[in-house]
Each structure stands twice: as C-alpha cells, then as structure tokens.
Amino acid sequence: MGCFHSKNVNHTPGYEDPALLADETPFTVSEVEALYELFKKLSSSIIDDGLIHKEEFQLALFRNRNRRNLFADRIFDLFDVKRNGVIEFGEFVRSLGVFHPNAPVEEKIKFAFRLYDLRRTGFIEREELKEMVIALLHESDLVISEDVIEMIVDKTFSDADTKGDGKIDDEEWKQFVAKNPSLIKNMTLPYLKDITLAFPSFVLSSEVENLET
C-alpha cells in the first residue's frame, strides 16, 4: 500500500496543481485527479510526451488517428488555448469544465458560438454555416441536394439573424439558443459527474489534501 504513495510523482509538462484547477472549474480536487489519469492515457496513446496531439485526440474520438473532422478540429483548437498545437493538462481540465453538468449555461453558449465561428471573426457567417452543414453531411449517410442545403441554411440563418445583417452575433446566438435549448445539449457530458468512478486516482490522492466531503 505504502509503496504507491510518493510525493515525487513525475508529472507531465504543463501539469497544474489540481487544487488550483478545482478552484477555477466545476470539478472537485478528486475529479481533477481522475481527469489527470484520463489525460495521461490520452496523451501517451501515440507520443508519450504528456501532451495531447491532434492525432491522439482523433484516435480517442474516432478510434482512428487519421480521421479528420471539421468539428473535432475546432474542438481541438479551442482546447488548445495557447495555440501551440497540443493540449496541456490545464487546458484540458479548464475546457472540459465547460462540459460539466454544473457549468454555467452562459459558458456553454459562448463555447458553442466560438466553435461555430470557424474563421474567428466574432460572428457566425452564412458561408460558415453552410460549410458546417456540408461537413456534417459528408460524415453521415444523409444525401441532400444543394438546393435543399441552401434552404436549410437560409431558413436557419433567417431565424437566427434577427438583425438581418447577414451574420449571427453572440447576442443573436444567445437568443437563438434560448429558443432552441437542444442546440447546446452536446455541450454537457453527464459522464463528467462520474469521472472519479471511471478513473480512481489511487496514487495522486496522497498528494493533495482533499477537503471535499
């Protein structure tokens, strides 16, 4: 038993104190420690350097390291806050915090907006929406004609772009999500509430005095 307890645990580069991360996110210290186990697994699946590379992210999502997907790319880019091509532990925890069932809905709405603002202009533009619909169709078995795609995009855009200026801003997006709450359903991962059961952290539990009850 004692042999598992070590204060000199080798942490990955970019490791951050679980107590600090727990302060900034909806996670408890134990949950952050459990996420560290998941992080170590994901970040060593191809290159064992303690950082999640895009191929490792794709491998975890699709069981295929080479499967490119517009939306997975966007998620990766948003998680990679420093924009250095890899996801560090702190970035991983803070970003996943948005997907926690207890995270504020406003954060989920903002994250989804940034996700769909492909070109980072501060707006979701019609062409971006069309590009995303086409990308979705490519990855599914749905075959829809160009005309119908245009109709779907037009209808959605006119519903969301209430100011009628040809782009959806964050305020319009917020109102649109309020009318269509299912749009951010995928921004909540109920699994995060059970993360300590899935990844019990026997080793790290000795490192932080966990004051949660």
Partner: peptide, 26 residues
C-alpha cells in the same frame, strides 16, 4: 426524407466530432 425544416445547427450538433463522450471510453 430531406429534413428541410430542420435547424442547421441541430444537424451540425449531431456530428461525431462534437461527441466528446468517446474520450471517456476505455
């Protein structure tokens, strides 16, 4: 059938790339 009346964002949100639950599968 073609989901003409479907919300485009609703369609997009079904992407497997947005389904992060697979990250937790063992």
């Amino acid at each position: 059938t073609a989901p003409v009346t479907m919300n485009a964002f609703e369609l997009i949100s079904k992407s497997q790339g947005l389904n992060l639950s697979s990250l937790f599968e063992k």
